[in-house]
Nucleic acid binder design. Structure first.
Lengths: 108, 108
DNA sequence: TTCCATTGCTACTATTATCATAGCAACACG
DNA sequence: CGTGTTGCTATGATAATAGTAGCAATGGAA
């Protein structure tokens, strides 16, 4: 019953269950992941512009998230510089967008 | 580091920007938040059943997330025991569900 | 060429969040 | 009574993130 000690390289929690949704929920559940997708919804941003957009978040985490999101195929780095969404990432972003209207209704 | 049920102490990053989407993205970007919503998509679960569903995640974090999600109005604790989604939480869950199909297509 | 600004990215330590385990009090059933 | 649930907490260890500084590479001007 013990969770096996992870054989990890870049392991995404839940990925060993064979259920992609778990891997996705884990990836998106990491800090700044959703925010990055949100901030890239429009035009591509340079790493520093993205950092500014993300409330000056630590470049350590941002780079880590960007690498993960790139490996996942959601984000790409244009040859002219600047991070942007891939077509796949844009599809994913389409599912994050409705959260905007929901959040407005939610207000808290 | 005492954690209290105080909603001030549990400040949600981005909430001070006045943009609800930021507060929501931050809340959902915490570990196990999305997973909890996902696991509660069906019938209500007891705290232990939820823990089992979440790969035996630490009860410390689960309780913290459940408290936050309850304060946010997404999750409630039925008087007969067991955690379930509120109507608002069910609306939010509706936006998480499409990720399932997306994840299947994504595969990685 | 040199100077300077910007790019993506990394090193480093301090702080925070999360893990993992054990256990509590309250309640229900027999 | 004992036994099994429930929701929930204490604790020390570990991993993730914050915060600051800085690097090499590139591309203009001057």
């Amino acid at each position: 019953m013990a969770k096996q000690a992870d054989s990890k390289t870049h392991s995404v929690r839940g990925s060993r269950t064979g259920r992609p949704i778990m891997a996705l929920l884990d990836l998106l559940g990491r800090r700044w992941s959703l925010r990055i997708l949100w901030e890239l919804r429009g035009e591509p941003l340079t790493s520093r512009a993205l950092r500014t957009a993300c409330d000056e978040a630590s470049p350590t985490v941002l780079q880590a998230r960007l690498t993960e999101l790139r490996e996942a195929g959601f984000v790409e780095l244009g040859e002219s510089g600047g991070y942007g969404l891939t077509p796949l990432g844009r599809d994913l972003c389409e599912m994050v967008m409705p959260l905007h209207r929901f959040a407005e209704r939610w207000k808290r």
